[in-house]
């Protein structure tokens, strides 16, 4: 390995859960291969618009945001990987990784942040969770203050989770000024 860094047992996270695989971060971009074959993710460095690090329970998560709004989450890095990869990404991909923080306070109130296809629920400026709007099959208003998101039921991507999110709703009180309701 002269060009880049190779990591085994990196989880790609998404709608159906997580899958383990091998991640290569090289001077041309990143490549992830599912363990045992199957899914492959390849991103050219010119398509990478943002990189984030987040400390999650017992490990680190690397977020790669690409041009078309998609966001890949890779989990399973050690402390020392973070510093070496940060330098490598800065020098070779030309993007400076930003640090995101995870909220574990357990609150259900906060703010909504939208970035590309990702909707993040933020508690005290830290991220509690995020979902991809690309997986939303339907949205509807319930009454004047509630927004319901329905998610595709996806059985095709090797989902490994036992319980799968199918619906989520947010309550936006009248006091909220971030999203002013449509008066029409």
């Amino acid at each position: 390995m002269t060009d880049g860094h190779l990591f085994n047992n990196i989880l790609l996270g998404g709608r159906g859960g997580t899958n383990p695989g091998q991640l290569k971060v090289h001077s041309g971009g990143i490549a992830w291969k599912k363990q045992g074959g199957g899914k492959v993710v390849e991103v050219d460095k010119v398509d990478i618009v943002g990189v984030t690090w987040m400390k999650v329970p017992r490990t680190y998560q690397l977020g790669i945001r690409i041009k078309d709004g998609l966001f890949y989450k890779f989990t399973g890095f050690r402390d020392q990987d973070v510093s070496s990869l940060t330098t490598f990404i800065q020098n070779n991909i030309g993007v400076t990784p930003e640090e995101k923080q995870l909220s574990v306070s357990g609150r259900n109130w906060g703010e909504i942040g939208l970035n590309g296809n990702m909707l993040a629920f933020l508690v005290g400026a830290k991220q509690a969770f995020e979902v991809s709007l690309a997986d939303v099959s339907q949205t509807q208003m319930q009454g004047k203050n509630d927004v319901v998101l329905e998610f595709h039921v996806d059985d095709t991507t090797g989902a490994n989770e036992k319980d799968s999110l199918v619906e989520m709703s947010f309550h936006i009180p009248n006091s909220n000024t971030q999203y002013v309701g449509d008066e029409a």
Partner: peptide, 25 residues
Amino acid sequence: ANALKFQGAIYLKEVSFRSKDPRHI
């Protein structure tokens, strides 16, 4: 009181999950 303290906040109101394991649920 909470609403006053955190005015302007958005709330997660409901989540639904589908499960393969009725006993676990």
